[in-house]
């Protein structure tokens, strides 16, 4: 045996695309890339939907509190302006109810305008309406 034969064989590809095992490696790469794309494609719409729900919820709560303030201020208006202000408030309430349902805030509570002794007020109506208590 010559000294040349004793040397360990070191792989030095001269023609890269003829390297042994190249097709196996490429297949592996494509599969990994495919898995990543699939995971991203699955997660991204869910993530976007979650962000949309969060934004809608926040918008609904903001609209609720601003409308509550507007409805409360109706009492301070002159009688001539009161009717128009209430009409606008009812329009806003309809939009709020749509937003409320889209945001899936609560299946049991819905915003509504009630007329009380102190004037109109924005309240949350219990769809199942049951009151428990000790009484005063």
């Amino acid at each position: 045996m010559s000294s040349t034969d004793a040397r360990p064989e070191v792989y030095r590809p001269c023609i890269p695309y003829k390297r042994p095992g190249l097709w196996m490696d490429l297949t592996q790469g494509v599969l990994v890339l495919g898995a990543l794309v699939f995971a991203f494609a699955t997660i991204e719409p869910v993530r976007r939907e979650a962000i949309d729900v969060v934004d809608t919820r926040r918008a609904a709560m903001r609209t609720y509190s601003s409308l509550a303030g507007r409805v409360e201020r109706v009492n301070e208006l002159d009688a001539s302006d009161r009717g128009r202000a209430m009409e606008e408030a009812r329009d806003s309430l309809r939009k709020l109810q749509v937003l409320w349902d889209r945001a899936e805030i609560s299946s049991k509570l819905r915003p509504a305008i009630e007329t009380r002794a102190t004037g109109p007020a924005l309240v949350l109506v219990d769809v199942g309406q049951h009151v428990a208590g000790s009484g005063r």
């Binding site: 609560s106 049991k108 509570l109 009380r116 002794a117 102190t118 007020a121 309240v123 949350l124 219990d126 769809v127 199942g128 049951h130 009151v131 428990a132 208590g133 000790s134 009484g135 005063r136």
Partner: peptide, 20 residues
């Protein structure tokens, strides 16, 4: 709502359940 009802004595109990 509870505070408003209490202030106006509108059938208000000390405890109530609204929408869970």
């Amino acid at each position: 709502q509870h505070a408003q009802d209490f202030a106006m004595h509108v059938g208000c109990s000390d405890q109530r359940m609204v929408g869970g």
